[in-house]
Amino acid sequence: MMTIMPIVQLILLSNAASNEIKEVNIVIVDRDQSESSRLLNRKIIANDRFNLVAIPFSSSTAKDYLQANKADIVLEIPNDFERKYVRGERPKLQMLVNAINGQNATVGSGYLNTIIGTFNAEIIPNTLRTTPATAQFTVASRNWYNPELNYKHFMAPGILAELTALLTIVLSAMNVVRERELGTIEQINVTPIKKWQFIIGKLVPFLCVGMILLTVGILVSKLLFDIPIRGNIGLIFGYAVFNLIAVLGLGLLISNFADTQQQAIFVAFFFIMIFVLMCGLFTPIESMPKWAQYLTIPNPLAHIISVSRKVLMKGSGFWDIRWEIIYTILLAIVFNALAIWSYKKQT
């Protein structure tokens, strides 16, 4: 047990946690529909780092993709692209980058710039020989949602969510087992108290602690880092209640199975490590292998980080975070049902 857990972590995390950006979702608005614009499109799609999500006709549709988190980059080719280019007028491409995840934004736009640069340098002069060699186009790039690529804005909500989950899981994991160690559970078990009453009694105080920590944490982040609060803050708190219940349920589940506090802490840390490194805070979930992306579904930390970033930085509403809410409620039900079921008053 002692050695298996770190080995599992080693295998899981080395595979899933990397700084490499493997997949950049791109939406291209081609207003030009010319030979050279299509050439540029093909060049981008041919690169396997890019995943073409859609080729809409209007830029507002493209921005919807960005808002819905389906696209990382929107590339807009203006309608006079080829004409201006042939005339040697230096046409401008527009690039909108979803910069909530600063790393994804920088690396993704870097890839794109390189491709466009190559396109500039090689392909156009070769295919359109009439063009003067000096004529090149420029890229106007804008980072959305986090315009200055402020790392703190991007990290602070995530770290706060992580710390809250960490505290609550440790508190709850230590709790039932502590009663077992002290012997107080012996006295409780002979009383007519129901299992679910016992678990709720354990849950509520820690839920309050978690909510207080979250409130203080958001205040501090606002004061110290001036994090943006674009969405409805109530939505975050409402969601956090479910999230904390899910995390606490897992903690209590661990506690029910542990014989000593040491065991409980050890197992809790196993989960914390995996949750933290696979929650999208350090490695964007989109860059993980597919199997690892599925593994983030039962990870409550991944959901709360996603929600806090979406709501705080992007101003997302209820509908935009519906999947996080659904998954979290399911997790809360599953973990707590297991915690109630595994709490045995009899041996």
Partner: peptide, 25 residues
Amino acid sequence: YMPGRFSLYQDLSVEENLSFFATIF
């Protein structure tokens, strides 16, 4: 039941322990 090992909540006061167990029952 009074277990062999002292099994009340050590951080609760005398009165709190008693009213806690009264409430549970």
